[in-house]
Design a binder for these strands. Sequence first.
RNA 1: GCGCUUAUAGCUCAGCUGGAUAGAGCGUUCGCCUCCUAAGCGAAAGGCCCCGCGUUCGAAUCGCGGUAGGCGCGCCA
Length: 494
Amino acid sequence: FKEFKVIGAYLNFFIDPVAFIKSVVIEGAEEGYGSSDEGQGKNICIDYSSINIAKPFHVGHIMSTSIGNALYRIYNYRGYNAIGINHLGDWGTQFGKLCYAYEAWGNKEDIEKRNIDALLALYVKFHTEADKDDSLNDAAREWFKRIENGDQYAVSLLDWFTDITLKRVNKVYDLMGVKFDYYTGERFYNDKMTPIVDELEDKGLLTESQGARVVDLEEYNMPPCIIMKNDGTTLYATRDLAAAFYRKKTFDFYKALYVVAYQQNLHFNQWFKVVGLMGYEWEKDLEHVNFGMVSLVDGTLSTRKGRVVFLEDVLNKACEKTAEIIDTKNPNLENKEKIAKQVGVGAVVFSVLSQGRIKDITFDWDRVLNFEGETGPYMQYTAVRCNSLLTRGEDLLDVAPDYSALNNDEAFKTAKALGRFPSAIENALAKSEPYLITRNVIDVAKAFNKFYFEHKIIDDDKAASAARLALAKAVKNVITTGLYLIGVETPEKM
RNA sequence: GCGCUUAUAGCUCAGCUGGAUAGAGCGUUCGCCUCCUAAGCGAAAGGCCCCGCGUUCGAAUCGCGGUAGGCGCGCCA
């Protein structure tokens, strides 16, 4: 501290700005700034994206996918071992319907060619036909029974549908840089539920209610958690319990996150409580990372009503727009296509992760395709500017910086924002809120752009220039790292 | 009806573990490229922080009660 003053009711401390700026600039430029080894040896299971087989991958899925991906990266950066799990929706009578529809009206070539679109068309056709002829529903149940009984042909169809879906969806994951360690869905846990039901039975937690077996949760102000239907079959909650026990046994997780929309708040509260009632203290390590809904301007997303926007289309359109902008602003740019992808996809992901998870989002093309202001491209642009400066001032790297050149308001504000980066990461992890990192990156970029406008970075004073370049280097590092943590790439040029 | 959740500028959102004159982006109007990438920088305009009561020296922030929207509430996931 340099001095302190009393102003009104406040005691103000003044620090030596140059010393502060210098330390932040040096630390901020280091690789791994804000990282930690606090998570050494701790496994974090993150359940995210969790797509349905044979269903389109639409804008709604971007929430779970990008939030989960960001948490995956943030945990790893803090030294944890994140385990990404795509909990596939790959079980249920719907697949009986699909098998029936394929046998009745499908053809292999069309599905190979149009994949999900063809499967979806079959699914829709089944429903229109079944409305006219109810016996189709029985036939579908029959098909699903064949799958359940392990009938080779029926299972091979399901495998094929799964394969077709994943191939298509993986294109989007690749584009977004999203990775999973496991693609284990409901089908995977199907044979792992009986021990759970038995244990619930043994511990006397199950009671009979209207023919079903349930865990009564009245004491906790919740409706009962249904474990087994009156026909003896299991439900969603049973499967989630089985999956949780499997994950605990297999990974001995330090935490298990479920990145699933808030519509399922009650569901998660219920089965988390059931774990607690079974006597397992790791109930506290289960976390439902919920988020708001994506809707369209004309209403909620509805596959059946044709109100769908495919995620692939959104990303592609953003990339196309970026390519157009590059052609007008920087036509001689190398690797145009790659950069258009980084910027276009980055714009979409950034906009999703720039606000609190819980907020509902109304999908709006204009907003997604706006690249000015607090947007992904602005952040990337700022990092690119820094990069350009660093290239230009390459020969100043050996010069001892004169940090007093940074004794100004703009550099001080930039340094303050840079200095907050580690705590932004900590808070993002603690609250499972990636946007806290996003906001910090925004602060850094804005502050630096102001600095850039007000001060010439490279001039005749080599020592001063070296100090200003050091600031640029720290800014580039924090923006690049911050964007990486939320799942956005930063190009070298744009 | 019960539970969860949201409400801040025309729009989209920060701020919410109480503190100084409530911030940003977009949009609108108007400026700034013979000079390091103008995807940038700046100025103007724009606020009963949903309402009421309470706690406090002090409330957008905490508590209670409302209002409005979203979501959920037994054999779908």
